[in-house]
Design a protein around this nucleic acid. Structure first.
Lengths: 134, 134
DNA sequence: ATTTGACTTAGAGTGCGCTCTAAGTTCTAC
DNA sequence: GTAGAACTTAGAGCGCACTCTAAGTCAAAT
């Protein structure tokens, strides 16, 4: 719970998050970091564990197609403190609906693809299948 | 099974597929149609039911993030006839793996978002929750 | 001390998938 | 026959999310 935090170079942060160093800098410039990333005396970035955790959560938002601008809105609410919790909740609940719809559409698409795969594999035993125009 | 096919204007095709007329023309130019779309004497497009069905399947590929170029590869295989079935199958099976991974990542991201939602809603009854830095 | 590689910045460039424009033609309704 | 909507084309433009560049600074090893 205390800040015995080990600090990470941008290369390490890249390893840990799966984002490129370019993207990490880009996200920072885009205002997506919760608080300013520490700097070494050399001005090199030093990522704390909590920075890493934040970026990790951020990638969950991104991987569910939340636009950068929306992520920024969310971060800005976070930075404004505890009295924005209701707004943050609403934002996430709204996003949740989008994600559920995405999952649903994707599942249906997968089913259609699987159906096509089955026709190629010969869904009917004994070669009873008909020639399809697709 | 016979071609009693009703023909559809591009506006109707747009309605039926959920794609804009712009996108329908774009896909055609991009070589994504299985066979050439019929034209009225006026040169207006006339979509057959099988065109519609094809576009519908095409959107399943697109909605699972298959790039346009890959869809085109697939279509070209389809056009080359029955001896490309093995290649088509391989292409779809490869894509299937990608889609499954996407579904998995999305599901995990949703879980992370739900977890955050729960913390905002007060996951613990009786307000036992701690202030989080996020 | 010098080389090598990792880092810094601001800003330009890229790739993808549309999306729109403009100028012209055709269909539908009156 | 004329108005207005829907269609046609080739090609330009756009938005998003990176991704890269260039010129310079800093760090670790020899």
């Amino acid at each position: 719970m205390t800040t015995t935090d080990q600090l990470h170079s941008i290369a390490e942060a890249s390893e840990l998050t799966g984002l490129s160093t370019h993207t990490l800098r880009y996200y920072e410039r885009a205002g997506l970091m919760l608080d300013p990333v520490d700097r070494a005396s050399s001005s090199h970035r030093r990522y704390s564990q909590s920075d890493i955790n934040w970026v990790t959560f951020l990638t969950k938002l991104r991987s569910t197609s939340m636009p950068i601008a929306r992520v920024r809105e969310y971060v800005e609410l976070c930075r404004r403190g505890e009295d924005t919790v209701a707004d943050r909740l609403e934002l996430l609940l709204t996003h949740r609906i989008v994600v559920a719809a995405q999952l649903d559409e994707m599942t249906k698409s997968l089913a259609a693809i699987d159906f096509k795969i089955a026709t190629y594999q010969g869904s009917h035993p004994y070669e009873e299948r008909q020639a399809s125009q697709q």
